[in-house]
């Protein structure tokens, strides 16, 4: 009744993607779509071989956006990402060669392998959405989204992202193993990289920009706002948590909840939307007490949410 003539195409794209191409990766796809709609970046933390790269490729393929990839190593230099000016001998001046970051969707594979200096440059670009090289500022394309991955188990020779930089990622999620039956089908079908490569774009850049403005218009009621605020306050008062959620995190919770509602085909945010994104938005931003640093942050967030009454009436 109250559903506006929302898209839609955009929702359909992701349904198609998870149904036809990436079975069992609905959640990470949904979160990627939310990141794209909010204009944030996503960090995927999981073991190699579970399809992190495939998801990023598929995302690029289905949206028809340009795709750049950076495989991070410890000797990766900032200029390897941002690009650099090369002297053109024929024309007699420097011309700027843009790096892989000048794409709509950028896959930063194993971001924790890059040295802090490079990480810092990348994260600055993510935040500012522009790159300044030799005094010239180059704006990054719009939409711009970083799809970073890191391998949590392999810690040797890596540089952990500091908390302040983790905060720049809108969402952080894992992928997990596919369900048993699904995995058998995937094994039987083989990889789908080729099929993804030949995928025809289903939405245009303009449609994405339109969807973004629709997300902004999703109604956030006072009740849900209080619900979000209660969650944030609860993380600040929790025993195991040293530093709770920041105001930026609270803003992000509201934005992503709007996007989630939009994807669910509604023009208002329900508490369910908040619940569906709370772990992905909050968990990586929590700073746990030193003796509790190994605690499962997602579990803590879920416990906190379970303790807060839903606004049902």
């Amino acid at each position: 009744m109250n559903q506006p003539a929302l898209p839609h195409a955009f929702t359909k794209v992701f349904e198609t993607l998870s149904r036809d191409y990436l079975q069992g990766k609905e959640e990470v796809l949904r979160l990627s779509a939310i990141a794209l709609l909010v204009g944030g970046h996503i960090l995927v933390e999981d073991l190699p071989g579970l399809g992190k790269t495939t998801v990023a490729l598929a995302l690029a393929g289905v949206t028809g956006l340009s795709f750049g990839r950076v495989q991070c190593t410890s000797d990766l230099l900032p200029s390897d990402i941002t690009g650099l000016s090369i002297f053109n001998r024929e024309e007699g001046h420097f011309s700027f060669q843009p790096g892989p970051i000048f794409n709509n969707i950028v896959l930063l594979d194993e971001i924790n392998r890059a040295m802090p200096r490079t990480q810092s440059a990348m994260l600055e670009a993510m935040e500012e959405r522009r790159v300044t090289i030799e005094g010239v500022t180059h704006p990054l394309p719009n939409p711009f989204m970083v799809f970073a991955t890191q391998n949590p188990s392999d810690q040797s020779g890596t540089f952990l992202l500091p908390e302040s930089q983790l905060d720049r990622f809108l969402l952080c999620t894992g992928i997990g193993y596919p369900a048993e039956q699904l995995e058998r089908e995937i094994i039987a079908g083989g990889g789908i990289r080729e099929r993804i490569g030949s995928m025809a774009p289903l939405v245009t850049s303009a449609e994405i920009m339109a969807a973004r403005s629709n997300v902004q218009a999703v109604y956030l009621s006072d009740k849900v706002l209080s619900y979000i605020h209660n969650i944030v306050l609860a993380t600040r008062a929790h025993d195991l948590i040293l530093t709770g959620l920041s105001t930026r995190a609270a803003i992000n919770l509201a934005q992503t909840a709007k996007a989630a509602a939009f994807l669910a085909g509604r023009d208002y945010v329900a508490p369910d939307d908040v619940k569906s994104i709370a772990v992905a938005v909050s968990a990586h931003r929590l700073v746990m007490r030193s003796d509790m640093s190994t605690a499962d942050r997602g579990g803590v967030i879920r416990t906190i949410i379970a303790g807060i009454a839903l606004p049902l009436a």
């Binding site: 009744m1 109250n2 009621s221 006072d222 849900v224 208002y268 945010v269 329900a270 606004p311 049902l312």
Partner: peptide
Amino acid sequence: YAGALYHD
């Protein structure tokens, strides 16, 4: 119900 409730 939610349409009304969460539209305040």
